[in-house]
Design a protein around this nucleic acid. Structure first.
Length: 381
RNA sequence: GGAGGGGUGCCCGAGUGGCUAAAGGGGACGGGCUGUAAACCCGUUGGCUAUGCCUACGUUGGUUCGAAUCCAACCCCCUCCA
């Protein structure tokens, strides 16, 4: 079993090509990590997710503590065994639910009291309990409990949440040792907060850096602010983080967000975009987005992308995908999710190769030109 | 032949005198989705020479200041009885 480690293999400007090692394998960075909140990447087999080139998937403390319960997962052999994913797992601490379930929680210095969205039962999630749960699950890359604030927000509110997150970072760090995460060779990431306020971002990043985490997450972005603001925050934050540690931009994003963030030194991403949008009939391709609900696909016999390696894109007609989406058939969600994750992972391969080759800027320019060109011409029968 | 029930916008369906171009579904058309309370959510959906007018609740006629709503006749559909 290997311990958590990170090595930078190449750089191109601020962009970094790296390799992250965890007890469950290696992760090529920049990496996109599919979201598997409830111990499944929705509409996908674990083997498929792996075959597309995913080195990591996410799980979520909040959802898994409610069902099936962290202790139960531990009794069943841990999350890797439970969900048939023998590779690296990253877990979110529940910090995002502080924002997304704002109406169902109460904050205190001690932690967050959630009222379950399932049955109304009350659960106390402290920084210590979150780390305990992540270790019960057997997570390789763990997140401190933090408070994620939706933007726009007033500066005092952003600062309060950021300072609280720093205090929780210290408690999480201690708990990570107490619950055996460090000894097991796992990693714990501190989470930079500070909203859209440069001063707060810098203070958060510097304070966390001094705590010597295995990696650093950048949270509280893509939560309502324009992309330009997010990118500006990255430019301010990343130079304050240790060069020797991985940087994870939480919850981001669109293909464009990803290429721009990699250019600013981000190593890891996760986002529900490819999976959720896929279930909703929206495909991501090298020539932009394709909305399969639209009537124009109804009699188009062409595949989504004849040159793709993914069967979902290569072997099925657009007319069929349109039909499956229209009829809300499960297979439609499966195929488009499959295509989307295939596209995202191929994009990440492209970015990694470009950094190695030192051609990142040109490569991204080419990608953007293709996206801007849009979908292939309308079908003429 | 008799008794009862019913005909509403693309479809189903609510509405039983004015607040009704007509609830709610569905369908159709489009948009959104960023550490997943999301196989979900949100718009639009009669026409026009548009702060108004026209057409429209089976058909025709009537009552009324005003009718999808009340009355009459007729045409269809359903159930039961002969």
């Amino acid at each position: 079993m290997s311990r958590f480690s990170f090595h930078c293999l190449a750089t191109d400007g601020a962009a970094r090509r790296g390799r992250l090692t965890t007890p469950h394998g290696e992760v090529a960075t920049p990496a996109f990590m599919p979201v598997g909140t409830q111990a499944t990447v929705k509409a996908m087999y674990a083997d498929q997710v792996r075959d597309l080139g995913s080195d990591v998937v996410l799980g979520n403390v909040y959802h898994l503590m409610l069902r099936p319960g962290a202790e139960r997962v531990a009794r069943l052999g841990g999350l890797h065994t439970f969900m048939q994913w023998p590779h690296t797992i990253l877990t979110d601490s529940g910090g995002f639910q502080v924002m997304s379930l704002a109406k169902l929680r109460r904050m205190s210095e001690q932690g967050v009291e959630f009222q379950s969205h399932l049955d109304g039962a009350r659960y106390m999630l402290s920084p210590e309990r979150s780390v305990e749960i992540q270790n019960l699950l057997g997570s390789d890359i763990q997140m401190q409990l933090d408070e994620c604030v939706a933007l726009p927000a007033d500066e005092p509110e952003v600062e309060r949440a950021m300072q609280l997150s720093l205090r929780w970072a210290e408690r999480s760090r201690a708990a990570f040792h107490d619950y055996g995460g460090f000894d097991a060779g796992r990693g714990l990431f501190g989470i930079v907060q500070g909203g859209d306020v440069a001063r707060l971002r810098v203070e958060s990043a510097r304070t966390l850096s001094a705590m010597d985490f295995e990696g650093y997450s950048i949270g509280g972005l893509a939560v309502g602010e324009p992309q330009a603001v997010m990118l500006e925050m990255l430019e301010i934050t990343n130079p304050e983080l240790p060069e020797t540690k991985p940087r994870y931009l939480m919850g981001v994003g669109t293909p464009d967000d990803i290429v721009e963030s990699v250019a600013r030194g981000v190593d890891m991403f996760d986002c529900v975009m490819p999976t959720r949008a896929g279930r909703h009939g929206l495909a991501f391709t090298r020539y932009g987005k394709v909305n399969f609900r639209n009537a124009r696909h109804a009699e188009d016999p062409r595949p989504l992308d004849a040159e793709s390696d993914c069967p979902a894109a290569r072997d099925y007609s657009r007319a069929y995908l349109h039909h499956l989406v229209r009829t809300k058939e499960t297979l439609g969600a499966m195929l488009i999710t499959w295509n989307n994750l295939a596209y995202y992972q191929s994009l990440m391969r492209t970015l990694r190769a470009a950094i190695e080759a030192g051609t990142y800027a040109d490569t991204v320019a080419g990608l953007k030109a293709d996206w801007a060109r849009g979908d292939i011409a309308p079908y003429q029968a």
